[in-house]
Simulated scan of single mutants.
Amino acid sequence: MVKHFKPEVIPNPEQRWLSDEEQAAWRTLIAVTVRLPAALDRQLQRDAGISHFDYQVLAGLSEAPDSTLRMSALAMLTESSLSRLSQVVARLEKNEWVRRTPDPTDGRYTLATLTTDGWDKVVATAPGHVEAVRTHVFDALTKAQISQLTTIGQRIMSAISQ
């Protein structure tokens, strides 16, 4: 059993404790951030044999000009470290879905390019993934809530970036 302390019991009276409403919202947000990626990962593993992160990499490249991005840009796009991304791209290379080459404009950088087989993987995988996203997120929300979700997410991301 977890012991919950009331603010008056804690030595620092200036601490800004969460209200009951904030605590409920916080716990819900934590549950979403844990359960949603896991649900999407299960669907992608079951239907396509890839992880959610693999799909993010492939989809990110599929939307890039010439299906190519610098690895550093792809890491930012996928909210990943360069070392994690490098390991995943190495695995995707073995499946011949991605190819890495030196950047011809600056050899200090490496480019990741989606191959034809990689494109085919994205095209085959996207419908099931979109359906899972609809089922787990958008079907449960009204249009107004979708707009609110965007605003809330942007505000949280902005606060994180400060």
Rank of each mutant, 00 (worst) to 15 (best):
P102S: 13
T115P: 07
V130M: 15
V123L: 13
A140I: 05
L114Q: 02
S147A: 13
T116H: 12
V130L: 15
H129I: 08
T151K: 08
A112M: 03
P102F: 04
A112P: 06
T105Y: 15
S147N: 14
R134V: 11
D103S: 09
I146A: 11
K143Y: 13
G128D: 03
L149Q: 03
T110A: 12
R134Q: 15
S147E: 14
T110C: 14
V133K: 12
V133H: 09
D106V: 08
R108T: 11
T125E: 01
V123I: 09
F138Q: 12
Q145V: 13
V130C: 12
L111F: 14
Q145W: 09
Y109H: 08
L114M: 07
A144G: 11
P127F: 05
D117T: 14
G118K: 00
E131Y: 10
K121I: 03
T113Q: 14
A144H: 11
V133I: 06
D106Q: 06
T151A: 15
V123F: 07
T116E: 12
T135E: 11
G107V: 08
T125C: 03
D103R: 05
H136D: 12
A144V: 08
G118I: 01
A124R: 06
T113A: 10
K121E: 05
H136R: 09
T105V: 14
L141H: 01
V122F: 00
T101I: 07
K121M: 07
T115S: 05
V122T: 00
T101Y: 04
T113C: 12
T142R: 10
P102G: 13
D120I: 12
T113S: 12
D106N: 03
G118A: 04
P102T: 05
A132Q: 03
A124Y: 03
P104V: 08
Q148W: 10
K143L: 09
A112V: 02
V123E: 11
D139T: 06
T135S: 14
I146N: 15
D120L: 09
V137M: 02
S147R: 15
R108P: 06
D139A: 03
T115H: 07
T115F: 01
H129L: 10
P102K: 11
D103P: 08
G118L: 01
D106K: 01
A124S: 04
G118S: 05
V133L: 06
R108I: 07
T115N: 02
H136M: 13
T135P: 15
P102C: 05
K143D: 14
G128N: 04
A132H: 01
D106T: 03
L114T: 00
T142D: 06
V137P: 02
P104Y: 06
T105M: 12
T125S: 04
G107W: 07
T125W: 00
T125K: 00
T105H: 15
F138E: 04
T101L: 07
P127M: 02
D139L: 02
G107I: 09
H129F: 09
E131F: 10
V137C: 10
